[in-house]
Design a binder for these strands. Structure first.
Lengths: 336, 336
DNA sequence: ACATTTGACACAATCGATTGAAGTAATCTT
DNA sequence: AAGATTACTTCAATCGATTGTGTCAAATGT
């Protein structure tokens, strides 16, 4: 047979399309024998009701859009695992989109999602402080959104974040306790939400311990690996910090590379702590002290919040903001 | 306005739905002014033609299903990047599914895809040597499939793999050149395709250099991290190999952990080479020698093959098997 | 024995967009 | 000026499944 539809199936079995449909959708309004006969035949011929036809009727896609800046990153990969875990239990699937931290890509994909391709969206935003009205359009369409980790403060949706301020404070304080006097703060974009909050923790920890804040020690890096390498190299040569607090895993890697090449001894000459959810951080040279976010749990929570909204569709669902705790793992890179 | 459709839009603008549709689909058969008027209005009101309605008509979903064993793994994450790159250029999106190497999950998802949710499938299979007839059903539905890295030999689809045999041979030979006499082979499931081929390279390299193959040195591990840790610990304690060739990145990490804990000096007491696409392999302690697969390029190729098939739909497209080259990076873990 | 409920299924409208064919007005031919 | 083009635009069937309403017979109630 070329192409089976519910209609051809109905003809074949001598029953109506409605009965077939009900067989697939577990209606009670159908005889068990009839249902079995239908399902058996369908299985044998490998038939499933067309997804797009069902969707058109029901306006449910059973699909979640997940938008992240990058995939080659244990934090996001683990978060996606968490999201998928929950989605799978609900019979949902994941439409994945990577923004590369490019604002325009984010906008373009979010706008695309207006067509109903996904029932809900979970995203970690690119973070640009631009006009976020494209996000508001989703609310009009009743497509719930949950932000995780990187959020837009001005958009009223549910959020899952970590205690970035406290964790940064603790990490910085830890470096101070190990004797660091000149701690550099590495950040990719100090103006976006997450960079700002983490920096505040750093700044306040310095102040608490009577260390003057030095703007030269705030190192604003880029998305480009090579540029970062040379920025950091220059910093280590010229500014000579004795501690590094990196708000982003990637910058810690770059720092390790530079130190390798310049023969800077960690932790003796330089101590490092970085935000990172890298599972093999203990295997690095030296083992990297990390502020580790509960990535997987964040994914779970984010998905759970989204389904909360999805299942109460139509009703006004109060936004929630869940804050999970990061954990500081002190390893050799900071003298641990 | 509650809900905009092409119909309500038509009424609003005083034109027919067909004209609207043509405005969106870049038909030449429409006046430029009319089109602009439509598109402007649509943009202002944030309207896009419903995805499911279009799909139902066209039987095109502009979606690619990507099935991988895991996501927290630089190899797969990079491959997904490559796939997404190509897909994006074609205006396609990615439906992501993770099997955790569980055969049943793979079967269940592949069967689900029979409903037309995706136009094509790119997958790295779980590898179980079971009945693969569920794959054949896709062919009937004209849904093209491309395997990458891990393939089923008995399924006739396009494939993208690497020169696993040669790379394994070279890696093993390298260990022999550094003086290893007792090289263990770490594998997760030695009966699946990829484990077998890589092992053959290992075996033949041993033979070429007159080293007797010892079955005790083939270490069949599991999916569970803790179990692997104890298996490997036992091996290092009892069998005392002087070299490790790991066919899977994860097992190399486990080995490094064990060595750390047991104070086994690498590369002096034990040399290691592993298949791995980890970008920070040079930053490990010690820097890990790797057989690195061109993950990103594999994703690109796989997606390209899929689009080849997609664009010639209906016609018989000859299967292709592209073999890319892995590269051996000799680092300190093997004395480099 | 007659009324009522229930079970099992069929009918047909509907979801929102696409598209071949047909229609209409304006422009061009000769 | 009649016919032929050209350039838009509309009409209406169609994609495949879902579901409220309706039907009919059997089961149950009194």
């Amino acid at each position: 047979m070329d192409h089976i539809t519910i209609k051809t199936l109905a003809k074949k079995l001598g029953i109506s399309t409605s009965t077939i449909s009900r067989a697939f959708n577990g209606s009670t309004d159908i005889n068990k024998d009839t249902r079995d006969r239908i399902l058996d035949y369908a299985k044998k011929h490998n038939f499933l009701p067309n997804h797009y036809a069902s969707n058109l009727r029901d306006k449910k896609s059973k699909t979640l859009a997940v938008i992240v800046p990058e995939i080659v990153n244990d934090f996001f990969a683990q978060a996606i695992n968490g999201i998928e875990e929950v989605a799978r239990k609900k019979g949902f699937y994941i439409l994945l989109y990577r923004t590369d931290d490019v604002f325009e890509k984010e906008v373009s994909f979010v706008n695309y999602l207006n067509n109903g391709k996904a029932d809900g969206i979970i995203m970690s935003v690119s973070g640009e402080a631009n006009d976020h009205n494209y996000m508001r359009a989703l609310a009009q369409k009743n497509i719930p959104v949950v932000f995780f980790d990187r959020v837009y403060e001005d958009i009223d949706v549910s959020k899952v974040t970590t205690n970035d301020y406290e964790a940064s404070f603790e990490a910085t304080e830890h470096l101070i306790h190990t004797g660091c006097k000149r701690i550099a703060y590495l950040v990719v974009n100090k103006s976006i939400s997450i960079g700002k909050v983490r920096m505040q923790g750093y700044v306040d920890a310095l102040e608490k311990h009577g260390i003057a804040f030095d703007d030269d020690l705030v190192i604003d890096c880029s998305q480009d690996e090579k540029i970062n390498y040379s920025i950091i190299k220059q910093v280590l040569e010229d500014i000579k910090p004795d501690g590094i607090f990196s708000s982003v895993e990637r910058l810690a890697f770059a720092t390790l590379s530079v130190c390798n090449d310049m023969n800077i001894a960690i932790p003796n000459d330089l101590k490092i702590v970085s935000f990172s959810s890298l599972q093999i951080a203990p295997l690095l040279n030296p083992p990297l002290s990390t502020v580790t976010q509960p990535a997987y749990e964040m994914g779970i929570k984010a998905a759970t919040l989204l389904f909360d909204a999805l299942e109460k569709k139509g009703q006004v669902v109060p936004r929630k903001h869940i804050v999970l705790k990061s954990k500081l793992f002190i390893r050799k890179s900071s003298g641990g």
